[in-house]
Amino acid sequence: MNIAIVKYNAGNTRSVLCALHRLGYEAEVTDDPGQLANADKVLFPGVGEASTAMAYLREKGLDIVLTTLKQPFLGICLGMQLMCASSEEHDTQTLGIFPIPTRKFSLPPEFKIPHMGWNTLQYQDDRLFSGLKGEAWCYFVHSYYVPLCEATIASTEYGGQVFSSVLHKDNYYGCQFHPEKSGDVGEQLLKTFLEEL
C-alpha cells in the first residue's frame, strides 16, 4: 500500500510514522502534488498554528490538490481543522472540505485550555469505527474546536461544550484527537482507515 503523509512543516509527522511502523506500514512524507494524488491513502497530521500552516499549503499549491483527492484521506488535529471552512485562529480561511468554521474554546475559568488529555468519543455508525468495541478513549490536545455539523460522526464533550471529534464526508475523514497517540483505540482506528476504507 502506498501511504502518503502531507508534508507542510506543521507538526510531528514522526509520531504518525512511528504509529504506522507499529502497524507494519511505511509511508512517504511529501508535498509533491503528483505523489499525493497517486497515493492509496493520504494522512494529514498537524500540530501548530492555522494561518502559518495555510500559508505554506498555498505556497506549495497544496490547497487545491488536497481538496480534489479521491482516495481515503484522514486529517488529524490541526489537519482536521484546516479541512474546515475557516478558523478563528488568526481569522484564517481554510480548505473548506467540511463547510463549518473552527472556533476557539470559550469555557468557564475552571476548565483549562488546551483541552489536553484523554476523553471519550460518542461515535455513530460508520465504517471507520467498525473495529471499536464499547468506550473509546482518545488523546486530545487542542484550543480550538469544530462545532457539531452534518459531517460529525463522533462527538466529545469538554467543559459543557460538545464538539466534533470525528468528521466524515465522502472520502474525507478528520479526527480532532491524535490516533497515533491514543493507545489501542487509536491504533485500531488507523488500522481500519488503512485496511477497510
Binding site: 514522526r14 507499529r22 497517540k181
Partner: peptide, 8 residues
C-alpha cells in the same frame, strides 16, 4: 521509545 509506545 517513540517506536514502541502509543501514548504521549
Amino acid at each position: 521509545i517513540a517506536d514502541h509506545i502509543s501514548i504521549p
